[in-house]
Computed example of a mutant assay.
Amino acid sequence: MNLDTLKQLDLDDREISIYMTLFRLGPASIRDIAGQTGVNRGTTYEILKRLAARGIVSYFPKGKRRVFRAEDPERLLQLAEEKQNALKHTIEQLKTDIIPGLHHLKPDFSSGNVSFYEGDDGIELVLKDILATVAHQPEKSYSVFSSKSLRQHLYRPFPNYTTQRIRQKISVKVIALGEGGEDAEYSERKWIRTQGQPDASYIAIYPPKVAMISLASENYPVATVIDSVEIATAQKVIFDTLWQLL
Score class of each variant (00 low, 15 high):
K190C: 05
G55K: 03
S228Q: 04
Y220S: 04
R69G: 03
L242E: 06
L242P: 00
V229N: 12
L51T: 02
L25F: 07
Q84D: 14
L6Q: 00
S171A: 15
V174A: 03
I16S: 05
V144Y: 02
P157R: 06
I213S: 01
L102D: 08
K64M: 09
R66I: 03
D240T: 15
T90C: 09
D13Q: 12
L150G: 00
L245K: 14
A80E: 10
F158M: 11
R167H: 14
A232P: 01
Y117C: 04
H89R: 14
I170D: 02
M212R: 04
M1V: 14
D120L: 14
Q93N: 09
M1Y: 11
K190N: 06
I56P: 00
V222F: 03
E81P: 03
S228N: 09
P198R: 03
L79I: 13
K49T: 12
T162K: 10
S171E: 15
V172N: 02
P157E: 09
E139N: 13
S115H: 10
L154I: 08
P61A: 10
L76T: 06
L11W: 01
Q244T: 14
L105V: 06
L242H: 08
V114T: 13
A132L: 11
D13E: 12
A232C: 08
L25N: 06
S187R: 13
H89P: 00
E124K: 15
T133I: 07
P198I: 02
Y161S: 11
Q164T: 13
